[in-house]
Design a protein around this nucleic acid. Structure first.
Length: 756
DNA sequence: CTGGGTGCAGTTTTT
DNA sequence: CTGCACCCAG
């Protein structure tokens, strides 16, 4: 198909001109060799990437199977796939025969992790056979129980000292902040968290292990712990998120991988090779992902990366905007060639005043002018949307206290609705750092909205454990296995014991409330407890040296759910979803094998050898590992998959959640975020000397911390289409001289706008 | 408008 | 434990 036909078919479905001579057109029509597309907010970067893929398939007649397209999140990947299917549908409608020639479903599109898993599966790569990819919770439980870093703190003490900054934060379980007494190791939860951070860093940072080993005893020990953790994963056929990428990189360098990348002329249908690699959200790429992309495209050099260096938000995950800023450098390093740079700088999303505000905002910070902070030669944003009007498109709302500010905000939304400036509350969004409904965070805002008769939509408020059905299910479970809460006595640390028993008592009260309406539930719980009691008694009298009771956690849990009120609750999809999540967590815990006895799992209730009861050690581990983790983590409510916010609900979200989205009215709260050098920055610096690809950019920690904050607000501000309204309680202005530091400048800038 | 005392709550994000 | 939001006295 010629491009002109392609354009004629699609143009009626687009709200902009598809022009091959425009900057967008040049991206779409770009042929061979590496290209980076630097695209500002609202410039249609995903649309451009999608059209490029369509042109590759329909105009340039590239086999879909040889095109790889990836992005950062599942949601974004789904969005891209949907758009491609929609546009491809229009093209097929005009040329039905093409359906037989172009199989759109062959396109390799998804998050990098899902592609890694799929491709290695397809090629039956021996390094990744029957592995279970662990999610965050599983990795946590697995690491806690299988890593010597956690299990043998004496040996790895030097690492704790070396990375003491990983133990500085507040620990919700022990109620302590920081690692106070260096005569003792940090507690097991802190050690687990640190182990995961360090292990993930080593993998994601593409670390040269030999260089690290030679750097000193603590580094040598770290590699020892890392290797031991990886041996455990291999032994138990498990894999974590960074490691699947590491294995994939090994696959790409293997014989099979070569066939995948370069193709197999004897079977071109099955192994066409990789012709094009297109990566969206490239600014959040980490070194191992960069290595994967350059490996995938090594045959043709057709690597197209799309992103906005100013919207990099994922340093905590090892993401480094450096990958974007130094893309050209990387192309020279890997392939000895230069890349083409394209800039999409017309914003089609926002009112010109907002575009201006965002652009001036990011350029007003001297720290953003440092070499390496932004892509060189990046043009200013220009406004291209049809939104006009002389109303105050950038404004702020003040209040004496947080509560006042929240009420003024809710009144403003009410006003917008009453005067039909907006038709639906879901045209707005409230963006803030934490959406927990506590007084410092979203609490007052959610309440104020409700007072105005506007329901907030806040599925990520992490109120999992506070939900009646969850508390009741856990309470029933504990009532069966440990009615007197004896196992809690095995948890070390007074404060920790208190916190855990406080929570567990809450659950038991919730169970009591549920049982009050359901005698059958109470019957079951009492009988089950009795049965376990009898069974352990028998085993004890028989002097049975085995400890298997023959009952699993899952059995008990599902029997609980089979009774009222849980049965009735299962008609509510949200409650069902939450109970399902709890069962998944139980299942994850249950499936963790014991270190010493293969074939036996945590999920099997164990009897004590010394007393007629459930094993104290088993109960202790249950509280320590599962209950402790549940209390510390906080889980989110189910979210509607395709809907950002249901009708008549006002979404409250974090800036990260809002990334990639747009709203007519955006309210931003929490402009007083302070510059702090977080642990991700320390880790970056600590691991930098061992990276296989050395960094070209050297910025001091404070500069990187400041840039992160500027980018954070930039993402928030640039979500707004019609109006951007900042919410500022007086307390946030105190002790912050305008113009002083990042926050002061932030505050100075909003003061130049209108007060509502 | 400032400073000290009191009371309460305790990041966030992804695969 | 630390840090902030808020209150009230000056």
């Amino acid at each position: 198909m010629h491009f002109n036909e392609f354009r004629t078919i699609l143009q009626p479905h687009l709200d902009y001109e598809l022009d091959p001579e425009s900057e967008q057109g040049r991206v779409i029509m770009h042929g061979e060799n590496p290209m980076q597309v630097i695209a500002g907010p609202g410039s249609g970067k995903t649309e451009t990437a999608v059209l490029r893929v369509l042109v590759l398939m329909f105009v340039m007649e590239i086999n879909p199977k040889s095109i790889i397209m990836t992005t950062f999140t599942e949601k974004a990947a789904k969005n891209m796939r949907d758009r491609i299917l929609t546009y491809a549908g229009f093209l097929f409608d005009q040329y039905p025969d093409l359906r037989h020639q172009i199989n759109i479903y062959d396109l390799r599109i998804g998050t990098l992790h899902s592609l890694c898993a799929d491709i290695m599966q397809e090629y039956r790569y021996t390094g990744y056979q029957n592995f279970r990819l662990m999610d965050e919770m599983e990795q946590y439980l697995f690491t806690m129980q299988h890593s010597n870093f956690v299990q043998d703190p004496e040996r790895f003490f030097p690492i704790f000292e070396q990375f003491d900054y990983l133990f500085q934060g507040y620990d919700p379980i022990s109620g302590l902040s920081g690692w106070r007494d260096h005569n003792y190791p940090p507690n097991q939860w802190q050690r687990t968290r640190a182990a995961i951070l360090l292990f993930n860093r080593i993998t994601e940072g593409v670390i040269d292990r030999n260089r690290m080993r030679q750097a000193g005893p603590a580094w040598d020990l770290l590699i020892e712990a890392y290797d031991q953790y990886h041996r455990q994963m291999a032994l138990h056929q498990r894999c974590d998120f960074p490691t699947i990428q590491k294995i994939f990189l090994e696959f790409l360098n293997s014989h099979v991988g070569r066939r995948f990348i370069e193709g197999d002329p004897s079977e071109p249908e099955i192994h066409p090779g990789i012709a094009h690699v297109i990566v969206d959200e490239y600014q959040d790429t980490n070194p191992i992902q960069e290595a994967i992309y350059f490996a995938l495209a090594r045959g043709t050099h057709n690597l197209c990366v799309v992103g906005d260096d100013d919207q990099a938000l994922y340093r905590f995950r090892g993401g480094t905007v450096e990958c974007m800023v130094t893309f050209d450098h990387a192309c020279r390093h890997y392939w000895g060639m230069r890349s083409t740079s394209r800039y999409l700088s017309v914003n089609y999303r926002s009112h010109p005043a907002i575009v201006n505000y965002c652009d001036e905002y990011i350029r007003s910070f001297p720290v953003m002018g440092i070499k390496g902070a932004r892509v060189e030669g990046k043009p200013q944003l220009s406004a291209g949307s049809s939104i006009t009007g002389t109303y105050p498109a950038v404004a702020f709302i003040r209040g004496r206290t947080i509560e006042d500010t929240a009420q003024n905000f809710a009144r403003c939304v009410r006003y917008l609705l009453d005067n039909h400036i907006i038709e639906n509350a879901n045209q707005c969004a409230l963006l803030m750092r934490s959406v927990k409904e506590s007084p410092r965070n979203a609490g007052h805002f959610a309440d104020a909205l409700r007072d105005q008769g506007i329901l907030p939509y806040n599925p990520r408020s992490r109120q999992f454990l506070e939900q009646e059905e969850i508390a009741a299910a856990l309470g029933a479970f504990v009532s069966i296995i440990d009615r007197n809460l004896q196992g809690i006595g095995g948890v070390r640390g007074q404060q920790i014991r208190d916190n855990i028993s406080h929570k567990v008592e809450e659950w038991i009260r919730a169970y009591d409330r549920a049982a009050a309406t359901s005698p059958a539930l109470r019957n079951y719980v009492d009988e089950a407890r009795q049965a376990i009691q009898t069974k352990t008694q028998e085993m004890f009298q028989r002097r049975d040296r085995k400890t298997k009771i023959g009952v699993s956690m899952g059995d008990v849990y599902y029997h609980i759910l089979a009774h009222e009120p849980f049965r009735g609750w299962q008609e509510d999809p949200e409650r069902t979803y939450r109970l399902g999540q709890l069962s998944a967590i139980f299942e994850q815990y249950a499936s963790i094998p014991y270190l010493d006895s293969p074939g036996s799992y945590r999920g099997d209730l164990r009897a004590s050898r010394d007393r007629p009861a459930i094993s104290f050690g088993w109960l202790k581990d249950f509280y320590n590992h599962l209950v402790g983790r549940l209390i510390a983590s906080g889980m989110n409510d189910p979210e509607e998959e395709d809907i950002i916010a249901p009708p008549n609900r006002l979404p409250i979200m974090t800036v990260h959640q809002a990334k990639g989205l747009e709203f007519d009215f955006v309210f931003v709260y929490g402009l007083n975020r302070d510059v702090e050098v977080e642990e991700a920055i320390h880790l970056e610096d600590n691991f930098e000397p061992f990276r296989q690809t050395q960094s070209y950019i050297h910025m001091i920690q404070d500069q990187r911390a400041a840039q992160d904050i500027v980018r954070f607000y930039y993402v928030a501000y640039s979500r707004a289409k019609w109006a951007l309204i900042q919410l500022v309680p007086d307390a946030h202005l105190r002790k912050r001289p305008p113009g002083f530091g990042i926050i002061g400048r932030n505050l100075q800038r909003f003061r130049m706008t209108h007060q509502l």
